Lab assay of single mutants.
Amino acid sequence: KEQQNAFYEILHLPNLTEEQRNGFIQSLKDDPSVSKEILAEAKKLNDAQA
């Protein structure tokens, strides 16, 4: 469930490039146990690119 939530949120971050988004999603698939950390990174990058 946590992985699904992170997946959904990353898909809807407006400021990520397609490449960045795909990278985060691939990381989620590779290691779902760190989905919280991956989501935090994605949000940080999204904010930095706002």
Rank of each mutant, 00 (worst) to 15 (best):
N15F: 15
P14R: 13
A48C: 04
I25H: 07
G23R: 11
E18R: 07
L39G: 02
A6W: 08
E2T: 03
Q26V: 02
P14A: 02
L28H: 01
D30K: 07
T17D: 08
F24C: 01
Y8T: 09
L28G: 01
E19A: 09
F24V: 01
S33H: 07
A42Q: 00
N46M: 03
L28N: 01
Q4E: 13
L11A: 12
L45S: 03
E18C: 05
D30P: 04
K29Q: 10
L13N: 00
L11I: 07
L16H: 00
F24I: 04
E37N: 06
A50R: 02
L39I: 12
H12F: 12
L45Q: 14
K29T: 14
S35C: 03
G23P: 02
E37F: 13
Q49R: 02
E19P: 09
A40H: 13
P14C: 04
I38D: 00
E9C: 06
I10E: 01
H12I: 07
N5R: 14
V34Q: 09
F7H: 15
G23M: 13
K36C: 04
K43Y: 10
E41T: 07
E19Y: 04
Q20V: 03
P14S: 11
N22L: 07
R21S: 03
Q20I: 03
T17L: 06
Q49M: 09
E9Q: 14
E37T: 12
F7M: 15
L28C: 04
L11Y: 05
H12M: 10
E2P: 15
E37C: 04
N5T: 11
A50M: 11
A48P: 03
K1Q: 15
A40W: 11
L11P: 02
D47V: 13
D31P: 02
L16E: 00
Q26D: 10
A42R: 00
Y8A: 09
E9D: 06
A50N: 14
A50L: 09
R21Q: 07
I25K: 05
Q4I: 05
N15M: 08
D31R: 14
N5D: 14
D30V: 14
N46H: 04
I10R: 01
Q3W: 15
L16R: 00
K43M: 11
E19Q: 08
L28D: 00
S27C: 04
F7L: 14
A42L: 01
D31M: 13
